[in-house]
Design a protein around this nucleic acid. Structure first.
Lengths: 189, 189
DNA sequence: CGCCAGGTTGAAGCGCTTCAACGTCTGTGG
DNA sequence: CCACAGACGTTGAAGCGCTTCAACCTGGCG
């Protein structure tokens, strides 16, 4: 099946091992606008996007919403800091369109990891992936200006950028919706 | 001894376990300006700063140097992406003042990790720490403006910021040296 | 002494922000 | 079926902050 294939490829798993992992997965469908994870909760599961798009965002004191992450098919989601440390999360995760996800509960993952040294070795993959993604984001913010960042985002997720509200994208890029609107206009030429 | 104490506390290690780790450490002293790690190499060791300060930076095509990380006593350093993936690094690591470090070779760490399930469990600590640091940096860049970022850096490493060249700090903050100079002037009031 | 790197300061410019108004689309209720 | 509200995007005008270019100052060092 497709899901297995993509998830397995992403994680370097196959056959029985992949099946073992899928055994503890919970499938869930969300509608556009559904909140998958609430602020001030402790994140006790990690997720994988089968189909759709999510945003992980933070509401600032001013009331302004800032997109911390925009994620699509094949991406993992969840506030990994809260998952790791057990601290309450400041983030909200919301579906930007109808979305199917697989959820893995921390308790199930921990049990799996304890069950077999294979999974103990495997468990490093999670923070490794999180770190690499985070590093890319830093490089994006540090090495490029707003316009270049938008360009790179377009390359990274071309179909999605056209479909989701502009304001989610602008705060992800660290600019105002108006600025992004003008950048778009500029780029058309 | 002090070093052991701090390193152990940072990693949650003590007694025999801490000694095991220190057994594979190589101490090294560097002078201000020494390059500890060279661009285009593969990073095959991780380091711990006993005393001093390092910067991890990238030279852009324009020739401009951008500080990716500024690190001080008690911080870990190394291009963890290159360490993980085996890819050539685009970063250079340089001592900003006379600095003592402990180096841990990947081959020794891998051997340690394979020797005992304790160390296999422990090995997740490394990417976890890297991820949490990276996440802080993203939040800094995304949630705050240049002036606030400088303020937060002052709180994070107050002694060091006074001692190292302004241009290293400004590129870490994502601004020009001139702008940082003016921000400093503004803040004195 | 004079050079050089690092820092400061001034002036001009550009890009993003802010505030505000208007256009467009969609869904809802009269 | 139309009218209207609300969300979203666009556009204009004014302002602010960072950038750029350039000049100058300062301290360290050969």
């Amino acid at each position: 099946m497709q899901i297995e294939h993509f998830l397995g490829k992403r994680l370097g798993l196959e056959g029985g091992r992949l099946r073992q992992l899928l055994d503890i997965a919970h499938a869930r469908r969300c509608r556009r606008g559904d909140v998958i994870f609430q602020r001030d909760k402790i994140c006790n599961s990690l997720g994988y996007i089968v189909n759709g798009a999510l945003r992980t965002y933070c509401v600032m004191e001013s009331g302004q919403e800032i997109s911390f992450l925009l994620q699509v098919n094949g991406d993992f989601f969840g506030d990994y800091e809260s998952y790791l440390t057990g601290a309450r999360s400041r983030f909200i995760i919301e579906a930007m369109m109808d979305t199917e996800v697989l959820l893995f509960d921390k308790s199930d993952l921990d049990r799996l990891i304890d069950s077999d040294i294979f999974w103990l070795r495997f468990s490093r993959t999670i923070p490794d992936v999180c770190f690499l993604e985070a590093k890319r984001r830093i490089e994006d913010l540090l090495f490029f200006g707003p316009e270049e960042r938008y360009d790179r985002l377009l390359n990274k997720m071309p179909e999605i950028v056209q479909k989701i509200p502009l304001k989610y994208i602008s705060s992800y890029l660290g600019i105002t919706p108006q600025s992004l609107s003008r950048i778009r206009k500029r780029i058309i030429n």
